[in-house]
Amino acid sequence: MPRIAVAGAGIGGLAAALALAEVGCAVDVYERAEALEAVGAGVQLSPNAAIVLRRLGVLDALGAAAVPSSEVRMRRARDGAVLARVPLGPAAEARYGAPFLSALRADLQAALLACAARRPAIALHLGRGIEGYDLRASGVALRFAGGTANADALVGADGIRSAVRRQGTGGDAPRASGRSAYRASVPREAADADAREPRSNLWLGPSAHLVHYPVDGGARINVVAIVDEGIAADGADPWSQPAEAAAVERRFAGWAAPARRLIAAAPGWRRWPLFDRPPLPRWSAGPVTLLGDAAHPMLPFLAQGAAQSIEDAAVLADSVSRSGGDFPAAFSTYEALRRPRTSRVQAQSARQGSIYHLGPPLSLARDFVLSTLGPARLAARVDWLYDAPAEVRRFAGP
C-alpha cells in the first residue's frame, strides 16, 4: 500500500486524507498544533464541495448540524432593499446534484475527523509540523523538529504560510489585501426572525459588505462583516485578534436597521486580516505537490476557499488512482487539471470584492443590473462555480 504524507490537518488536509484512503493509500497526516482547534466561525459548502463530502461520508457525519440554504439574498445596505435572489434549496440540488449547506467550521472539522477515525489507513500525528523535506529515489524524507519520517509522496496542505510551498517554490509571500473580516456568532434567540431563515444573506455597501447565515442546526447565526481598511496586517495570528464591538457598530452605523440590529446582537468580534497570494506557475515537483490554501489562497468573496480545497482532494485522489503508483505523473495530472480552475476562482473572488464594495455612482449601476437579471439568469451565472467539473465528478460520482 503506498504511503502518502499530508502536511496540515485543516479542511483540505483531512479531505485529502479521506479521499486518498478511499483509493487505497495509507495516509499520515502531520499537524503542527498539539491539539486541533477549529478556527473561524462558519463555512458555506456549495454543491461543488458537498458532492465530494457526500462521497466521503462527511455529509452523513455532519447531519443536522449543517443547514441547507434556500437562497442567496442580496440587499442594499442603506435601506435593506432586496436587489436579487439566487435560488438554492431543492432547485440547486436538482441542478448540481448536491445541496448548498452552511455549517460551523468546528462541526465540519469534527465530521472530517470522525470519518478519518473510522479508516485504519489514516494516522493523525499532532504536534509534528513538517519543517522541510528531501527528495529521495524512493520517495520523500520528511524533516520535523527533532525527527524524520519517510513517505512515498508528500501533499502540502499546510495553509497560506505553507512550509512545503516555501521550500518548493520560494519567492512570494502572503500579500495583504487592505481589507479585514470581522466575525461573530449570534445566538438564534438574539437575532431577528428574518435573520434566522435558512438562507445566505449578502448586504452590499460602499467599502464594506455583510454576510450572515444560520449554522449549528440553526442555533446560531454566523456573521461576517468585511471592510476596506487600507492598512496592512500587523503580522499577528489573524485568528487571535479580538475587535471592539463599538468600532464595528460605528462602521455600519449608516446601514439599514436590520443589519445594525444583527451587528449589535453579536456577543463579541474577531478581526481577520485578509491575505492571498498570486497563482503559482507550478504546484508540484516530483512526488511533492500542494493543495488548498498552500497552492491557491483566495479572498473569501465567492466563499470558495474550503470548497476549492475539497475539489482538490477529489481530483488528487482520482489522479493517484489512475497513475499506477507513479506519484510524479499523478501530481502532474492533478496540477494540470486544477490550476486553471483555481486560478479563475482566485481572480473572480478578488474582482467580486471590488464589485461588492462599490460606492455611488457605480453602485447604482451594479444594483440596477442585479435587480433586472432575475433569479434564472442569476443562477445561470454561478453554474461555472457550483456545477462540479468532470474531473471532480469522476471521483465524487453523479
Rank of each mutant, 00 (worst) to 15 (best):
M1L: 02
V6A: 00
A7W: 07
I11E: 02
A15H: 04
A16T: 02
A17P: 09
A17N: 12
E22D: 10
Y30T: 05
R32A: 14
R32D: 02
V39P: 01
G40A: 09
G40K: 05
N48C: 01
N48E: 01
A50V: 04
V52G: 01
L53Q: 05
R55N: 02
L62E: 11
A66N: 00
S70P: 03
R76G: 06
V82G: 03
V82N: 12
G89S: 09
A91Y: 01
A92E: 11
A92G: 09
R95N: 05
Y96V: 03
Y96M: 08
Y96C: 11
F100D: 12
A103G: 06
L104S: 13
R105T: 01
A106Y: 01
A114G: 13
A114C: 04
C115S: 13
A117L: 04
R118S: 13
R119Q: 14
I122T: 04
I122L: 05
L124D: 03
G129S: 02
I130D: 03
E131H: 06
Y133S: 04
Y133G: 03
D134A: 15
S138M: 00
A141Y: 02
L142G: 03
L142R: 02
G146F: 11
N150A: 14
V155K: 02
G156A: 10
G156Y: 12
D158P: 00
G159Q: 01
T169V: 15
A173M: 15
P174H: 12
A176R: 03
S177H: 15
S180H: 09
Y182H: 15
Y182G: 07
S185T: 15
S185N: 10
A191D: 01
D192I: 02
E197Y: 06
P198W: 06
G205S: 12
P206D: 13
P206L: 10
A208I: 09
V211H: 02
A219C: 08
R220P: 00
R220V: 06
A225W: 07
I226P: 09
D228K: 15
D228P: 09
E229V: 13
I231C: 11
A247S: 13
A247M: 06
E249W: 09
R250A: 15
R250W: 00
R251E: 14
F252K: 00
F252V: 00
F252L: 07
W255F: 14
R261D: 15
I263V: 14
A265R: 09
R270H: 09
R271G: 05
R277D: 14
P279K: 08
W283H: 04
P287D: 05
P287H: 05
T289R: 00
A295S: 11
M298N: 07
M298E: 12
L302E: 07
A306Y: 04
Q308N: 03
E311W: 00
E311V: 04
E311K: 01
D312R: 08
A313T: 04
V315A: 02
P328R: 06
P328Q: 08
A329G: 13
A330W: 08
A330H: 06
F331N: 09
S332I: 01
S332V: 09
A347T: 07
I355G: 02
I355L: 15
Y356M: 13
H357A: 15
L358V: 02
L362F: 13
L362Q: 13
L362G: 08
V369M: 04
V369E: 03
S371W: 07
L373I: 08
L373N: 02
L378I: 10
R381T: 14
W384E: 03
Y386M: 11
V392R: 11
R394S: 10
F395I: 02
P398V: 00
